[in-house]
Computed example of a mutant assay.
Amino acid sequence: SNPITANSQDTFTYELLPSVGDLIISEVCGDGVDGSNSNDNGSMEIYNTTSNTLSLANVQARYYNSNPGAPTQTVDLSGTIAPGGYIIITQNETNFNATYAPITADFSGSSFYFNGGDDGVDIYDTSTRAGILDSFNDNGTGASPWTWNDDNVFERTSTGDGALSGSWTENTIGYGTPGADNENPLPVTLSSFTAQYVSGNLTLHWTTQSETNNSGWNIYRSISDNFDEANKINSELIEGFGTTTIPHNYSYQDLSEYIPGSTYWYWLESKEYDGSNEVYSSISIDIPENNLNPPDLSDVYGLFQNYPNPFNPSTEISFCMDRDVFVTLTVYNLKGRKVNTIFQSNVKAKTINKIIWDGKDEAGNNVSSGIYMYMLKTDNETYLRKMLLSK
């Protein structure tokens, strides 16, 4: 189980166990970047891509002096890593700290040489979900090792497998930036953005291959392909996945009024934690004249509109996934505060799941009338819809 610590304001801090994509090796500095390859101050930087504090209790850093092959040395990590935080592993902490002051190393391994060649490192989970969380250069995984120079710095710039050289940029000058953002951070890569009209419901779907400091999303709609005439349709920011190197799927239902027989254009805007933004190219969808013959729903997956809606005092929420997966279904108010987690379990693929929400919060109290959001989350998907409780 994950430890939970409560404070006097009845909020909770969770120390979660990392999954693949949560912790990544974001930078590797060779021992010779400072002009000397004998002071043992090379390093690897591990970055927490999530918005959660992650436990390092079952995590190891492993060094490979020859790849592929067995680890030369394993260092057991401990403690936690903060959201968007870094930890640094080096061979000689004293020499590293002297070179990179005021940055200090968190862990050290006497055989973590960082002296180039075909050496490599990885992050390994020793729990019941044992496996490699991320890697730099091949470590026996089957990828092809490459030869690297210990005078250089490698920065992660791709969502691809870290065991492959194509996932990194090699810098021949500079000491690197251990403990801080890379000079060439991973981009937010949007791989798809589509709209779907089914049984009178218009839903937007999008997928990212990677995200960097992504606080969340806004959606804009217009009756013309002109962003200056578009209006934002989501009342609250749709939560992003921060920084991640694995794909994530999103879904959002447009509950705005629309006219049958019309065409609408939609834009996605990503918002970073520092307030900067990026607006992506528009998509359009034609609304049919009527909905007398809705399409077959047998191959539609995701989170469906609750029924009845509006409702009082209870409503049924249904969803269907295209794979066996662990899901969490949570109700929020319009301020984004959690009202109640009403379902949390593994579900089977291609099975319609029906969950009843009785209009109560986690303490069993009836909630007031108003608009509520319900969110379905998996390991890499987020679906969000709205419903109206009317008393």
Rank of each mutant, 00 (worst) to 15 (best):
D76M: 11
S43W: 14
R62K: 04
D40V: 10
F96C: 13
L54D: 01
L54T: 02
V75P: 00
Y64N: 04
E93Y: 08
G30C: 09
T94M: 07
A82M: 11
I81K: 06
N39E: 14
A61P: 08
Q60F: 13
A98S: 08
F107I: 10
T94H: 01
G85A: 05
L77D: 05
E45K: 10
E93I: 11
S78F: 15
S51I: 14
T49E: 07
S36Y: 10
D76W: 01
P83D: 08
N52A: 12
Y47N: 00
T50Q: 01
A82F: 11
E93M: 14
Y86E: 05
I24H: 03
T49C: 14
G35L: 05
I81F: 09
G69C: 03
A61Q: 06
F96M: 12
T90E: 00
D34K: 06
T50M: 04
G30A: 09
N58L: 14
S66P: 01
G84N: 01
N37P: 01
T90A: 00
T53S: 14
A101Q: 12
Q91I: 02
V33K: 04
E27R: 10
G35N: 05
G85I: 03
A82S: 13
T53W: 09
V75D: 04
A57P: 03
Y64S: 09
I46S: 00
G30N: 07
I46A: 04
G85Y: 02
F107C: 10
N48M: 14
T72D: 14
N95I: 00
L54C: 02
G32P: 04
V33W: 10
E45C: 13
T74R: 00
A70E: 12
L77M: 03
F107N: 08
S78N: 11
N92G: 01
C29L: 10
N37C: 05
A98V: 03
G69T: 05
Y86Q: 02
I81A: 09
S36M: 13
I24W: 01
I24S: 03
L23Q: 07
I88L: 14
I88E: 03
N52L: 15
T80N: 12
F107E: 02
E93S: 15
Q73T: 10
T99S: 09
V20Q: 08
G85T: 01
S55M: 06
D31R: 01
S26Q: 15
A105Q: 09
V28R: 02
L54R: 04
N95E: 10
S78G: 12
G21P: 00
Q91A: 04
N41K: 06
T49S: 11
E27N: 09
I87D: 02
N48Y: 14
G42F: 05
P68H: 05
P18N: 00
G30F: 02
G42M: 06
A57W: 13
F96T: 06
I103A: 12
A61T: 11
V28F: 08
T74V: 06
D40F: 14
I89Q: 01
